[in-house]
Design a protein around this nucleic acid. Structure first.
Length: 400
DNA sequence: AACGGAGTCAACCGCCGCACC
DNA sequence: GGGTGCGGCGGTTGACTCCGT
């Protein structure tokens, strides 16, 4: 526990790396590979600890690193991924080839947070600041403590949360938000479900948190309940729905493996009565695979070559300061959100949730349930909403 | 030119989970 | 089961640069 043993050793250099040190490390790893990092400094003739060498290699010397400023597309992608993953920089970095988690973290803290705030978007919740303030005021005083922690920073995700006590293998990629986000979500959820199909018990989950996407007037969310089910919350208004497309990149991160899908349009449908689509990827070892491999998962099992675009609410009523800002924000909201850099990857689904489902998708609905027959070529929620479903939930397989 | 605040970024710190003994 | 070593991660720090006054 605590510091790495090598850090206790004396006479180890700290601070910035000299060009000579870089050269030594680069030479050594190029010739021998890093192997055991703790032995690298000694073998490479460096007065550094192994961790320091590892960090230097990963963040600076690695040959596949992309240099230079982040492109607009990369920034957009980071924002979208952050909305789903929170401060999971390594997973975000896995979706941005050549970029390091450190780099992305720095960009977020120094630049993107500010940009979002300038656009009246709360960088922690990705909701409009006005709404965050409103929800903050609506919370009972007893919740203020949690609210303070979570609204202040996503970094405190799951603090005091029962999920924290679970082993990582039992936690899911979606646990990115905070208890206050949960509160906010519940508030939103209650406001948008006007029939009996939505029960708070469906979404109040002590083990999992969820994220609520809210761009302008678009309200959609993802939740998880104690039964290990995740729920996709549709946009709250029909106009939202018409303008919303869920990014499959979000789904990449949420459903890395062994996913079951179910519809909850009818509250009488019990989980065991719902037909499930289930990935044939039952290899438990994949349950913890990183973002990059989850992409492969979709490629391999769902036929999704790469991801779709996010096109959330073109009419987002985000307060804008100038026309130029308006334009930029509009561009952001409408920028195709594409995973991967290669042109051949930039072609996939970008269909409206309400759009027609092509027969060949294999996404089948009936009166009581919605299921995918493996392997659908693309992730489509359209049919779910065309049947006016209030909720669309995704249940993880128990082998996760 | 000098100063100070803001922004950027590389590196460190502390913790966690896993593997091994 | 407990201790230890190690890799990995996210948060934080501090040096440096930029820019306005």
């Amino acid at each position: 526990m605590g510091r790495h043993s090598c850090c206790y050793k004396q006479k180890l250099r700290k601070g910035l790396w000299s060009p000579e040190e870089d050269e030594k490390l680069l030479d050594y790893i190029t010739k021998h590979g890093h192997g055991c990092w703790s032995s690298v400094p000694k073998l490479a003739g460096l007065q550094r600890c192994g961790k320091s060498c590892r960090l230097r290699w990963i963040n600076y010397l690695r040959p596949d690193l992309k240099r230079g400023a982040f492109s607009q597309e990369e920034e957009n992608m980071i924002i979208e991924l952050h909305a789903v993953l929170g401060n999971r920089w390594s997973q975000i970095a896995a979706q941005l080839p050549g970029r390091t988690d450190n780099e992305i973290k720095n960009l977020w803290n120094s630049c993107l947070k500010k940009k979002l705030r300038q656009r009246s978007i709360d960088p922690n919740t990705h909701k409009p600041l006005s709404e965050v303030e409103k929800d903050k005021d609506m919370l009972p005083s007893t919740d203020k403590t949690n609210q303070k922690a979570s609204l202040g920073s996503n970094e405190v995700s799951l603090v005091d949360h029962p999920a924290k006590a679970l082993p990582s293998s039992e936690r899911y990629p979606l646990e990115v938000s905070t208890s206050s986000t949960q509160e906010l979500f519940l508030d939103r959820f209650g406001a948008t479900c006007h029939d009996n199909s939505c029960r708070p018990s469906d979404v109040v989950g002590p083990y999992f948190s969820f994220h609520h996407f809210n761009y302008g007037t678009t309200n959609m969310g993802l939740s998880a309940n104690p039964n290990a089910s995740l729920s996709f919350i549709p946009p709250s208004t029909s106009s939202d729905v018409n303008n919303s497309t869920i990014s499959s990149s979000m789904l990449h991160s949420i459903f890395p493996t062994h996913v079951k899908l179910q519809s909850n349009d009818n509250p009488s449908i019990s989980s065991d009565a719902v037909q499930n689509w289930e990935s044939n990827n039952t290899n438990k070892s994949n349950a913890s695979m990183q973002f990059q491999s989850s992409t492969n998962f979709l490629e391999n099992t769902w036929g999704v070559a790469e991801s779709a675009k996010v096109n959330i609410n073109k009419d987002a009523q985000v307060p804008l300061q100038t026309e130029q800002e308006d334009l930029k924000w509009s561009e952001y909201l409408n920028t195709p959100f594409i995973l991967g850099n290669t042109p051949e990857n930039q072609i996939q689904t970008s269909q409206s949730i309400y759009s027609e489902v092509k027969p060949e998708t294999g996404f089948i609905t009936d009166e009581s349930c919605t299921s995918w027959h493996h392997p659908p070529p693309a992730f489509q929620l359209s049919d779910v909403y065309s049947k006016n479903l209030q909720r669309f939930s995704v249940t993880f397989g128990q082998t996760l």
